[in-house]
């Protein structure tokens, strides 16, 4: 996997794709720009999740908690205490990072293997949702409406949809960049060792607990940052969307369909499926609510059975076959 990650930086495809994405707001109709923005949000989520789910090989279901903190806490700090949302975003990210580290510690304390991690993180996500829904400070069940965007960048307002698109693209690229940076760092080496065999990694002196906590914290911070920006873009911090464990399941499905062991996996999974899902929702949303999620679920089952490595490696095999 490592050489592929090195290669990706030299690949003209990546740079072309970045430039192509960056100029999208200049010509794309607003309906499709909204789709593209959503795709960027989920690409960012999927890359952030991948640090734990892919690089460390642990299925975390806690990530809705971090997105929720980023969205709800930063919004609440602004609305209840008048704290600037840039500052709120950082405070929320800090809280998320600490929560991530604590969850990793609790899991390490229990030590039931892969299963327990998924299970314990799911329990945390469930508690997180209950807290948000029940605590008026964070908006309760009705959520928090953010003030109208007046294009004031100092108050975390990015003007029109292009502004949000570029900011969310920046965050998605940041999440991708962090993935690459980790892979080329000692941390990436340790995480691969942990993924391969935790016991063996520990035996040769890898500090398993510290590295797991670090991975979880980094992943949580990224999710939290994107969560804040996403809520601001929607001008509504909706707990049923942003703090629900279903959000994590969606992220996991997108990353897995794309392929968690491939650098392009989260990009392909979220970048492809979110627009398709949005289109389905646009056409069938009133008749068949949930159709797009149903299709994600179906696609995941098919992919795991037919292409266990995910879509991205299958695409690159196809690409190589055609270029020969």
């Amino acid at each position: 996997m490592k050489p592929e990650f090195f290669g990706i930086l030299r690949s003209p495809v990546l740079w072309l794709a970045l430039v192509f994405t960056a100029v999208l707001p200049l010509w794309l109709p607003s309906y499709y720009l909204h789709m593209a923005t959503l795709a960027l949000v989920y690409v960012g989520f999927a890359y952030a999740w991948n640090i734990v789910g892919g690089l460390t090989g642990q299925v975390s279901l806690a990530h809705s908690l971090f997105v929720g903190i980023g969205a709800m806490l930063a919004s609440a700090l602004l609305l209840r205490l008048g704290i600037n949302m840039w500052v709120g975003m950082l405070i929320a990210a800090l809280v998320s990072g600490m929560a991530g580290a604590v969850i990793a510690w609790v899991d390490y304390r229990f030590r039931l293997g892969h299963l327990s991690f998924a299970l314990i993180t799911l329990a945390f996500a469930e508690v997180g949702e209950l807290v948000v829904l029940g605590w008026d400070f964070l908006g309760g069940a009705s959520g928090l409406y953010l003030p109208k965007d007046q294009g004031n960048l100092q108050s975390f307002q990015f003007g029109g949809s292009s502004g949000y698109f570029w900011f969310l693209m920046l965050l998605a690229v940041l999440a991708l960049g962090v993935n690459l940076a980790i892979l080329n760092s000692p941390l990436g080496f340790f995480l691969r060792a942990i993924r391969g065999n935790e016991g063996a990694a520990q035996a040769v002196g890898v500090n398993v607990l510290r590295n797991k906590m670090l991975a979880m914290a980094i992943s949580a911070v990224l999710c939290s940052l994107i969560g804040t920006a996403y809520a601001r873009y929607l001008t509504f911090a909706d707990p049923y969307l942003l703090a629900s464990p279903n959000l994590t399941i969606e992220i996991v499905l997108l990353a897995t369909i794309g392929g968690v062991s491939s650098a392009f996996g989260p990009l392909v999974g979220a970048g492809l499926l979110i627009p398709i899902g949005e289109m389905l929702r646009g056409h069938f949303g009133s008749m068949l609510p949930g159709l797009h999620y149903f299709i994600y679920g179906l696609l995941l089952v098919v992919v795991i059975i037919a292409l266990p490595q995910g879509l991205a490696p299958a695409f690159s095999r196809l690409y190589r076959r055609f270029s020969n």
Binding site: L115, N246, T256, P289, L299, L300, V301
Partner: peptide, 14 residues
Amino acid sequence: IQLTLGLTFLLQNG
């Protein structure tokens, strides 16, 4: 785990 999460979405939304 991922497979059963997919089933969750299938069933819920079905």
